[in-house]
């Protein structure tokens, strides 16, 4: 049994909605509303959901780039939500983030060498400039780029190459956990698979643990060991990746899977087209947040939120249909 690297318990992030001259709080956007899970060392946990499901907010709350409203985030047994500012800054060495937009996530004024040395300077790693430059060259080669690119600037690179640089920056501090927030969503199809392969190789070589946030279900299925499905800030389903696709239990997961266009013109599938729009997380439906669009909703779904239950071994679902 592998040991847990990260343990998230009842994580919540409510953003206040302020109105009026005095900026009175009139309500909250419940971006993340009680999420709990554990990530084992060396594992990849995929997190999927549509816009407003809170997956990005969740990632940033775990790293405390956004301060969580409540909850516990245990990293190697230490609750990092309680850490003071200085301790937290040191802790950031252990956990890194890779962003979606390779065009916005690199500072246009920094050369690639500066970009990659920045983390080493912040954490005072590798004494001299020569050692750091040497490390930069090794990092670039590690992510499949020419070491001579160090002198260039971000605008000289394509999206895929920039994303490799973003990954190299995350690796510069030798983290244990990397949260990947839609790392291939902005890339061309033919380049996506290059980056996915790179991520797999790095994980194997360096023993990394990933939280992979995405909206593309086939990508998540490919890279994840287990997948967590979110809807309006709540957990819907959590299970091993292939099992989720083979036997989705939650009606939302079923609809989500059936909505994915498959690159096969002969694919005959029962398509579930959900009616209506995603509700706003500022005003989520009562009870189960999915009941407004759920094809099998019952009266109880409107009244009470379903419990998080292990329906089959290691297959967790929050749905009244399995009560």
């Amino acid at each position: 049994m592998a040991e847990a690297l990260l343990q998230v318990e009842d994580l919540k992030k409510y953003f206040p909605i302020r109105r009026g001259v005095f900026q009175r709080t009139v309500g909250h956007v419940r971006a993340v509303d009680g999420i709990s899970f554990t990530v084992q060392k060396g594992e990849t946990l995929g997190v999927v959901g549509e816009s407003g499901c809170g997956k990005s907010t969740m990632g940033r709350s775990i790293l405390r780039l956004i301060e969580p409203t409540s909850g516990v985030v245990n990293f190697e047994g230490r609750n990092i939500v309680r850490l003071r500012k200085g301790q937290m800054q040191a802790m950031r060495r252990q956990m890194q983030l890779v962003f979606q937009d390779p065009y916005a996530s690199l500072n246009p004024r920094f050369s690639i060498a500066q970009t990659l040395m920045e983390p080493m300077i912040i954490h005072n790693l590798y004494g001299s400039r020569e050692e750091r430059l040497d490390r930069v060259r090794r990092l670039l080669e590690r992510v499949g780029l020419d070491a001579d690119y160090a002198r260039r600037y971000p605008h000289e690179f394509s999206g895929g190459q920039r994303q490799r640089i973003g990954i190299a920056r995350a690796l510069a501090v030798d983290p244990k956990l990397i949260i990947l927030d839609e790392p291939v969503a902005a890339l061309d199809v033919s380049v996506q698979s290059q980056v996915l392969n790179l991520l797999e190789d790095l994980q194997e070589e360096l023993g990394l643990t990933y939280i992979f946030i995405a909206h593309d279900l086939s990508v998540v299925r490919h890279i994840s060991d287990r997948i967590l499905v979110l809807y309006l800030g709540r957990m819907m389903e959590l299970v091993e990746a292939e099992e989720l696709f083979a036997d989705p239990l939650h009606p939302y997961t079923q609809a989500l899977l059936s909505a994915v266009p498959v690159p096969d013109p002969d694919a005959k599938r029962e398509r579930i087209i959900l009616q209506g729009d995603l509700p706003s997380p500022a005003n989520p439906p009562s009870g189960c947040p999915f009941h407004t669009r759920c094809p099998v909703a019952k009266p109880v779904c409107r009244e009470r939120a379903p419990q998080w239950k292990e329906i089959k071994p290691k297959h967790y679902v929050a749905c009244h249909a399995y009560a």
């Binding site: 950031r92 983030l97 962003f99 937009d101 996530s105 920056r169």
Partner: peptide, 17 residues
Amino acid sequence: EFEYVQAERALGASNTR
């Protein structure tokens, strides 16, 4: 709001920096 500023925070940089 640019992600490279967030990236810098994620690296553990101080506010002044």
